[in-house]
């Protein structure tokens, strides 16, 4: 943790730079959302990649995760695994062969 005075003084500059980068990225996200990519899913993927980069910057620099204790990393690693389970397993159980057209619902 950046606890000593010098380290904090050094990082102050970075706080403003990161803040500026975040705003630029937000503008970029807005702009890209109006661009027609081959599929809309691609738009979503690009938008989410940008958002993830922004989130990573906030977490690493503002929340000091770039130099945190191992214990916090462990807790967060488990949390991330379970959140991914929430996202992926939900949707995998939704994308079910029974719901493919023609399998269960006769195609009209």
């Amino acid at each position: 943790m950046a606890d000593n005075v010098e380290a904090i003084q050094k990082s102050i500059k970075w706080y403003f730079i990161i803040g500026f980068i975040l705003i630029v990225f937000s503008g970029l996200t807005v702009g890209l959302s109006y661009v027609e990519l081959p599929t809309h899913s691609l738009n979503i993927i690009v938008g989410m990649i940008l958002a993830t980069i922004k989130a990573a910057l906030v977490a690493l620099i503002f929340m000091h995760l770039s130099h945190e204790r191992p214990l916090i990393y462990k807790v967060l690693a488990f949390t991330v695994v379970f959140v991914l389970a929430l996202f992926l397993l939900f949707i995998f159980s939704h994308g079910d062969p029974l719901e493919f057209p023609g399998f269960y619902n006769p195609v009209e």
């Binding site: 943790m1 204790r69 214990l71 916090i72 807790v75 967060l76 488990f78 949390t79 991330v80 379970f82 959140v83 929430l86 996202f87 939900f90 949707i91 939704h94």
Partner: peptide, 30 residues
Amino acid sequence: TGLYNAKIGVWLFLASEVMLFGGLFSAYIF
């Protein structure tokens, strides 16, 4: 551990918040 109590507490709380919004985002996807 290199941590004071409140810092552990808030990170645990944030982990639970991540699950809260994780649940909501998974509802959004669904």
